[in-house]
């Protein structure tokens, strides 16, 4: 982790109406590194992701990405700057076909000319998607939908990829595949912010860890430092 961090949150708070979800969250993702964000349900992990990508407005604090203050930028501008957020749950357009889903992303990121080549690369990486290109994405299985979401971001080079519970509900084999793909992304130079329920999985993968509890950061540091007292940090109790 050398040089200035790619993504930096400074004292960020956010709320849904009157329900406050984040309290003074500060964290940073270094260029070319992977940060794991862990915590129990409702700890505010997804809200961090949403705040970063501009889906949820911050109430106070600042967010910098790639040297630019993006605190109150609209989501589409942040996306165009090279920050991709793969949301939790269904993150593809059910009403569009597989090919239309891919085209929508590729056209925006690469320009219209590059779309056919990008489609070929996506189908090369995920032959299943090629077989189902004319099928509407809502009819895909959960794993296939996750593949589609990954294909959208794997083909286009990003500066930062925010993945929210990408492996949730997948078969172990698929989880391996997902992490292999994330490894590729990382080695290609893209930074990662990974939100995971499979804590050990994420920890093995990441360079650093931030633990959230009830909307606050309770740990920010190395993986090794976190591992020994993980259950205390995450679950908020001291193991006997």
């Amino acid at each position: 982790m050398s040089g200035p961090p790619l993504l930096e949150l400074e004292g960020v708070s956010a709320s849904y109406g009157p329900y406050r979800a984040l309290f003074d969250v500060s964290l940073s993702v270094g260029a070319g590194s992977a940060l794991a964000l862990v915590g129990v349900n409702g700890a505010g992990k997804s809200t961090v992701a949403r705040v970063v990508s501009g889906l949820v407005p911050v109430t106070s604090g600042r967010i910098r990405f790639d040297g630019v203050d993006i605190t109150r930028r609209p989501a589409y501008e942040i996306a165009r700057m090279g920050l991709t957020h793969v949301t939790e749950g269904r993150s593809v357009f059910s009403s569009l076909t597989v090919e239309e889903n891919l085209t929508l992303s590729f056209r925006q990121a690469l320009g219209r000319r590059e779309v056919p080549a990008a489609l070929e690369r996506a189908y090369g990486a995920f032959p299943r998607l090629g077989q189902r290109r004319a099928q509407s994405a809502g009819t895909l299985s959960g794993g296939e939908q996750r593949m589609l979401a990954l294909a959208r971001v794997l083909v286009v080079r990003q500066k930062l990829l925010v993945v929210d519970e990408l492996s949730f509900g997948l078969a172990p084999v698929m989880v391996d595949e997902v992490y292999a793909a994330l490894g590729q992304v990382l080695s290609a130079g893209t930074s990662l912010l990974i939100i995971e329920q499979h804590v050990d999985r994420a920890l093995h993968f990441a360079d650093a860890v931030v633990v959230l509890s009830k909307g606050r950061v309770v740990y920010d540091g190395t993986v090794e430092g976190a591992e020994s007292r993980l259950s205390e940090l995450v679950l908020g109790r001291v193991e006997q």
Binding site: Y76, A79, T84, F93, S94, S95, L96, E100, Q108
Partner: peptide, 16 residues
Amino acid sequence: RAVVESPRMTELAGVN
């Protein structure tokens, strides 16, 4: 068509 389904997800793809 994408916006009809989810304006936010469309924005995440870089579309206004």
